[in-house]
Design a protein around this nucleic acid. Structure first.
Lengths: 225, 225
DNA sequence: GCCGAAGCTGAAACCAGCCTGAAAGCGCAG
DNA sequence: CTGCGCTTTCAGGCTGGTTTCAGCTTCGGC
């Protein structure tokens, strides 16, 4: 889960970024509107947290730019102004949710989860994410196999598997996985992903993740056959 | 767009129902929790507006019932209580949004639109490219034949087929295909294209790609005479 | 019908990309 | 500080997609 936090208030970022990372997101920070726009133009984020009062380019402008270029990632707007007119304006501009400062971190996290649940197919039901006999336990960082066996996952294995389970049947390139697992600071030329895929396969079974040479990996492509 | 308004405050219903209808929704009203549950069990609503303080059965219970029975329509919760704890509780129970009374009708409509935008897979992806029973799945790098059989394609086969499907009925010369599949640096004197055409035909069926001697290939010219 | 050109296709070579075990690096708890 | 487990790197081996090649078939013109 990769997330862009577009916010210029350093104190807020300092508090929020660790909380988001603890919740399992890879967080990029953009401190003004121009940077935010550029970030999301080059990377496919799963979600954007957008402050309206950004320097250089306002949040609304940035949002309109994204929507007019058919970028469709969920955007949650943060703002200090709590008038219903502004809410309407922001939501009709294409935002998915609207949170007023000051807010409690828990509320924000719950809203993010609600928005993501909505935007990713098949995640509408609460409880553990499960696909065809494999289920992921969000709380305990573990997975349960079809036969009931429980498998403990490391942090990265967990995020990797969740990324797969959120996009069953889709080819995920190594680059894409890299972007989702790590934030912009880390620059990998290596085969980290391959290594983790190996470890993950050893734990949950080889067949769940199929490799497509030169393209990436597919989760649970054994729908038929 | 069919919508269930689960609300027992008659004055609120009297004001809200016409506004919703004006906005283009077909509105059913349920005045208590048991009715609301029964309505949504028998009809697939596009969206439910759920008051938390319903008689006979609370909104949270109803919501939990739906989610546990894997009903996945979007639910927007209405409530008078504005504590962040309740927001978190409601959102984690599976609601999609949370609106506090009193609210402005415009704000509610904007939120409904935002929620629906997310939940309908309408414009999320440009849709699979499909021509006369053959469809190309961009996400899964595969093709689906008319009879439902799925065929996995290699990277080059995929690009080749996409090139054909983007120009149905047009003669594409080998040179032209070469330019589309490789960058200009590579200069092929060989019959790579022919080889790939063979492999592609073997996978999707011979008739899709017709050869025009000395000119090139045509996709789907005279769809199966 | 004959002939050359163009296209088809199976087999094999080639090689980029992937797998994986081992070991080094890193961070954290005791 | 030490030990442990997670993460990352590295190198060698392997796999299978891509390309080449050679022999064959098909097509169109004469």
């Amino acid at each position: 889960m990769r997330l862009l936090l577009a916010e210029d208030d350093e104190a807020l970022v300092a508090g929020l970024k660790p909380a988001l990372e603890r919740a399992g997101y890879a967080v990029d920070v953009a401190t003004d509107g121009v940077l935010a726009q550029r970030c999301a133009d080059s990377i496919d984020y799963d979600l954007v947290l957008l402050d309206l009062g950004l320097p250089r380019r306002s949040g609304v402008e940035v949002l309109q730019h994204w929507r007019s270029t058919r970028k469709s990632m969920p955007v949650v707007v943060l703002t200090a102004r709590d008038t219903w007119q502004e809410k309407v304006a922001v939501l009709t501009a294409g935002a998915d949710d609207y949170v007023c400062k000051p807010f409690h971190t828990e509320e924000l996290l719950a809203r993010l989860a609600a928005v993501l649940k909505r935007s990713t197919p098949d995640m509408r039901t609460p409880g553990p994410l499960s696909v065809a006999g494999l289920s992921l336990d969000e709380g305990g960082q573990s997975a349960t196999l079809g036969d009931g066996a429980r498998v403990e996952l490391s942090a990265i294995e967990f995020r990797l598997l969740r990324c797969f389970m959120l996009h069953p049947g889709r080819v995920l390139s190594q680059q894409r996985l890299n972007e989702h697992l790590y934030d912009q600071a880390t620059d990998h030329e290596s085969n980290v992903i391959e290594a983790h895929i190996t470890r993950l396969r050893r734990k949950i079974g080889r067949d769940w993740i199929q490799t497509r040479r030169g393209q990436g990996y597919v989760f649970n492509a054994l729908a038929e056959t």
